[in-house]
Design a protein around this nucleic acid. Structure first.
Lengths: 188, 188
DNA sequence: TGTTACATTTACTGATCGGTTAATGTTCCA
DNA sequence: TGGAACATTAACCGATCAGTAAATGTAACA
């Protein structure tokens, strides 16, 4: 495999891990599903752990990019965007390949907060939170950090709930709660 | 192992799975950590999957029992209890053995919603939700189901956030959001 | 055409996976 | 004391785990 095919390997590994789980998908199966021999995979990544971290960082970039762009398509005011973020979530939940969040799942399989895979998940959530804080600041909320973190709690909760019980009504309910919180922090 | 030691086996297996994860803890390690030979374990449980389901059902009973009792110790009005549930969460988060929620983690390792282990997790969350709905009804909230489900989103989000980023401020922030939501549904 | 360099495959390592078989205690009653 | 019943152990099963070594294929350049 030439060096230029590394991104394709990461992309295919992402699909495999998303579908099957990090521990459950072994390197042999990964080689099969990516169409790349194990030896070639290990040319690019020293360990499975390194590959997973690369997959997560790729996912981070792709997801945040999609999320922000979608939100900006859906609304053009800060408050509108804070709310629209839940519509974007709903689209994600309703998709065929939604199997919870790859970062939450990673942190559940690699429990130690100091584990590189766990840290990659922490980073993703921190960056997402920073984006929401920015929106809350633009909106002129009384306590933007507090509001943003509360909205993030609703988002994480919605992800878990949509995965465990199914996606119906979950994002809409989270959005309704978000509306109440936003209204509170904009009038106090 | 006599039949009477089955509960102890479940209890020890719970600790092992909580500490190490469901897939990561193999049956050999489980035998070592529970002090029970594999053959004896398989006398009580046909498969590892059956054992995990038994562990989860035990955890469900134990956790809900603790949760409800703690809440009723902390407050004696329905609204007080809705809020106190977040203080109980905080106590859980701050404990030494907090490694996210065993049911969330189970649903993350066994992704298929039809999988028995996933279903056991769904059941636990459904029963918890039912309890919170009951409190919201007692409180006389305008839309008790909606309020309760929104509070549940905050709880699930808090669990994930406390696990990924650490427990500091998480439950308190969720409680602050809960206060706003409760206030809204009690005055409208 | 011969050679160097690199990509890729096959076959393998020891360890561990979930689960089973056969042998060895141990207990209890006749 | 003999033996049926049951609990427990150790050894083993084929499959798979993450990772590696050796062999093979392929391309570029001299």
């Amino acid at each position: 495999m030439s060096i230029s095919k590394k991104p394709q390997l990461i992309e295919k590994a992402l699909i495999a891990f998303n579908k099957g789980g990090y521990q459950a998908v072994g390197m042999d199966r990964l080689a099969k599903e990516t169409g790349t021999s194990k030896t070639s995979i290990y040319k690019h990544f020293a360990t499975k752990e390194d590959l997973i971290v690369a997959v997560l960082n790729h996912r981070d970039e792709k997801f945040r990019n999609w999320f922000v762009n979608r939100i900006e398509e859906l609304a053009d005011t800060p408050i509108g965007r804070l709310l629209a973020s839940f519509d974007a979530l709903d689209e994600w939940f309703q998709g065929d390949d939604f199997l919870s969040c790859m970062f939450i799942r990673a942190s559940c399989e690699y429990l130690d907060r100091e584990h590189p895979i766990h840290k990659a998940s922490e980073r993703h959530k921190r960056l997402l939170t920073a984006y929401v804080i920015g929106l809350a600041e633009q909106a002129g909320a009384a306590e933007p950090g507090k509001l943003a973190r509360q909205l993030m709690l609703l988002k994480e909760g919605a992800i878990i709930t949509a995965h465990i019980h199914g996606p119906d009504c979950v994002a809409a309910n989270a959005k309704a709660a978000a509306k109440i919180l936003i209204d509170h922090y904009m009038n106090n």
